[in-house]
Amino acid sequence: MKKRSLWGEALWRLTENRLAVISFGIIVFYALIASAAALGLIASPWETEVGGSYQAPSSSAFKLWLGTDIFGRSVLYKVIHGARMALGVGLVASLISVPLGIVLGALAGYFGKWVDHLIVWFYTTLSSIPNIMLVIAITYVLGKGFGAMYIALGITSWVGLARVIRGEVLKHKQRDYVLAAESLGCSHFSRIFRHIVPNIVHFGIISFSIQFMTAIKTEVILSFLGLGAQGQPSWGIMIDDAKQELFQGVWWQLAGATVAMLFVVLAFNILGDALRDALDPRAGRGIG
């Protein structure tokens, strides 16, 4: 049998899982659509009227595939821009929280003593406030909108990862390769980030996919509560609009936003599980 590197082995395990490959394809598809919308290549501009109010879906033109909203705007265009918003929030929030979780977890595990006490106390405190309430409170205090939402989601969701990384670093720091690095005169910084962290960074990758999905779900709820997107298209606002429309028989706005969200969250759920199986075969339970 051919010998593979650890990462090669993980990649092979991942591609063996057909559902995971499909999920990855779905996420790439969403990312492409979102980027194209961000660059103005498709579905632009979304604010203009393309027909009458509440026009039912029709196959006559791409922009009418999902009908129109109360102002005659294309629902499909709004769904596409909603994807841009949701993926943006997911990306920024996990780009904040994953590095934060790795760095703080690694520092706590490596240095121990008061550094550990302080960081553990900090994340215990942070995780003692119910997540959704903390996110709501931070978004509210910072003045609503996307900036506030990025920060709120980013700084609240690193705790689970930090706990795992701390535990792993505790195990690794006494291993021979770290002691060898020490005897060669490597600094603390180099020992943590060049020697230990690359061995446990896969936990960050697993956590990334989970946090990306959580952020998308939370964005929808925050926007629905009026704390997120302000005057911009968002699946949450579309669903909020739909609560009156449904009783008038207008189902396409709700259906568009819900189905769009369902597929991307489903894909992240499946990919997250597959990543865990591939990268951390011994673990039975997720980190979140």
């Binding site: 929808v220 709820i221 709700l254 489903l266 499946i270």
Partner: peptide, 15 residues
């Protein structure tokens, strides 16, 4: 389970 977890709660409520 995965399917149930992926449907947004708002959709459950409205439907």
């Amino acid at each position: 389970c995965v399917l149930g977890m992926s449907v947004p709660m708002l959709a459950y409520i409205l439907l």
